[in-house]
Simulated assay, not measured.
Amino acid sequence: MGELSDLWREHVGGRVIGLAISQNAAEVLRGEGCEHTANVAAFLTAYRTGQASLRAGDLVVVDEASMIGSGQLAEIQVLAEAAGAKILLTGDTEQLAAVGAAGPLGLLAREHGYYQLTEVQRMREPWERAHPLRCAAAT
């Protein structure tokens, strides 16, 4: 996120806004270098009340997008499109779906394609990096 945020600001000039389903996940995005973060519910509430905004050139990173309900994701899309902002959905298409109306990440990935990381990024220790890959291979 830090490198993406730096590159986006340098080449596009917009803000990078990180949204996640939980506040803890939003704080992880902040720790990885994303200056503007919030959980999805808080962001949408702030937007509706005029306390948050999007503008042309902004990048809205929706982290763990498979866990976000389709209604919330659709609302974020409408807001971003109206402002001239871009959306980047990140997450695992095999992860648990949203509690409410199913998260559409898997459908979007199948219909439109996607990029997949080939290296574990968040873990620092070699033994930590190997574990998620072993779990994925076991399924």
Rank of each mutant, 00 (worst) to 15 (best):
L54N: 09
A42W: 07
A42V: 12
E27S: 07
L88E: 05
A80V: 01
A41E: 10
Q77G: 12
E64D: 11
V61A: 09
L44D: 07
H36M: 12
A41C: 06
A26R: 02
L73F: 07
G84I: 08
G50R: 03
G91R: 03
M67D: 06
E75C: 00
A41S: 09
T90F: 06
E27N: 08
L59V: 01
Q72H: 05
V40T: 09
E32F: 02
G50F: 07
A85F: 02
T37Q: 09
R48K: 13
D92S: 04
A46N: 09
Q77W: 08
A83N: 10
A65G: 03
T93G: 05
I68G: 09
T45V: 13
A41M: 11
E27D: 14
I76N: 03
A83H: 08
Y47H: 10
A42Q: 10
Q51V: 08
T49F: 15
H36G: 04
D92M: 03
E35K: 07
E64C: 07
E64N: 09
G91M: 04
Y47D: 13
A80D: 14
D63K: 04
I87C: 11
D92C: 06
L59P: 00
L79P: 11
L44S: 03
G91F: 02
T90I: 05
Q77R: 08
A56P: 13
S66A: 15
D58Y: 00
E35F: 04
Y47T: 03
S53R: 13
E32T: 01
E27K: 04
G33D: 07
T90K: 08
S66E: 13
V40W: 06
T90Q: 07
S53T: 05
F43A: 05
A41Y: 06
Q51C: 13
A46L: 11
A74H: 13
E27Q: 11
Q51Y: 11
S66T: 13
S66M: 10
I87P: 06
E32Q: 13
G50P: 11
E81C: 08
H36A: 15
G57E: 08
N39Y: 08
V78L: 14
G57W: 02
S53W: 03
T37D: 14
Q72K: 05
E81D: 15
Q51G: 14
A83Q: 11
Q77I: 04
A42Y: 05
V40K: 05
E81A: 09
T45G: 09
A74Y: 05
A41T: 09
C34S: 11
D63C: 01
A74N: 15
V61P: 10
T45L: 15
G33A: 09
F43C: 06
A38N: 13
D92N: 01
G84M: 13
M67V: 04
C34N: 12
V40L: 14
E64R: 09
S70N: 12
A42E: 11
L54E: 15
V60T: 02
G84Q: 11
V28I: 08
A56N: 08
L59H: 01
C34D: 04
F43Y: 07
